[in-house]
Simulated assay, not measured.
Amino acid sequence: MKVRQAALGSAVFFLVGPGTVVILIPWLLSRWRFDGPPPSGLDWLVITGRVAGVVLILAGGAFLVHAFVRFVVEGFGTPVPAAPPTRLVVGGAYRHVRNPMYAAIFAAIAGQALLFWSLPVLVYLAIAIMVVVLWVRIYEEPQLRRRFGDDYVRYCGNVPGWLPRIRPWRPVFGESPR
């Protein structure tokens, strides 16, 4: 797939996929209203939660864009299952965690739950995490193992799926997996 086609496909998918999951559904659940603060004396908790929420939304958005760009420039494909990358994407944020797109989406949703102090968005986050983890285990990981073989097995052995490693993994492909 050409880089221009991959970029266009990724941009459209970005608007439809993550746009729905990160923006539309949380908005439908919260209408982005700031619910009233908890009982007096806990105002600091609300303020801290809202600041943390903004940080999570901004960081999640930045990492999500970064992960999409990696698919185009490194993988020569898109995150769309119908037009997957032709090369295993292991650079950038993928050197720290195998699922930076999903982690970024979860961060942005968690940020909205904190910013708007929204229990429905928090429940939505929990459901989204369960669905995505099952999707990754049942569909994505087996597909990637078939598609990229030993390189993907080695990658899985060195990079955690959900909680990032501190030091970036430096891949050396072509050797037998550990």
Rank of each mutant, 00 (worst) to 15 (best):
V73H: 08
L134P: 00
L119I: 14
H96S: 01
V90D: 06
G111Y: 07
R87N: 13
A52M: 11
A107L: 13
L114D: 05
L144K: 15
V132I: 11
A62C: 08
G111F: 07
L122I: 03
A93G: 02
V90I: 13
W135Q: 15
V121F: 02
G61R: 07
V72F: 12
P85E: 02
A104P: 05
H66F: 08
L125H: 13
V132T: 13
V133E: 09
L42A: 07
A104S: 15
G61P: 04
I109R: 06
W32H: 05
R137G: 07
P38K: 01
A104W: 04
L125G: 13
W44M: 02
V65P: 00
A83V: 11
V136E: 06
P39V: 08
A113Y: 09
G92A: 03
V46E: 04
A103H: 04
W44F: 08
P38H: 01
L122M: 10
R145N: 01
V133N: 05
R95Y: 10
I109A: 03
N99T: 07
L134M: 10
L115K: 07
D35M: 02
L144W: 14
V72Q: 10
Q112P: 13
A128K: 02
R137S: 03
D43T: 05
H96Q: 02
P39M: 04
L64H: 10
F68Q: 07
Y94Q: 05
R137D: 09
D43V: 06
P142V: 14
P37L: 04
V97K: 08
V131K: 04
N99K: 02
G53E: 13
E74D: 06
L58W: 00
L114I: 03
A67V: 05
Q112C: 12
A67Y: 03
G61Y: 06
N99H: 13
G49E: 06
G53W: 14
T48G: 13
G61F: 04
V80R: 12
V133F: 09
P142I: 12
P100M: 11
G49H: 03
F34M: 02
L42S: 07
E141P: 15
D35V: 05
V97H: 08
F106S: 01
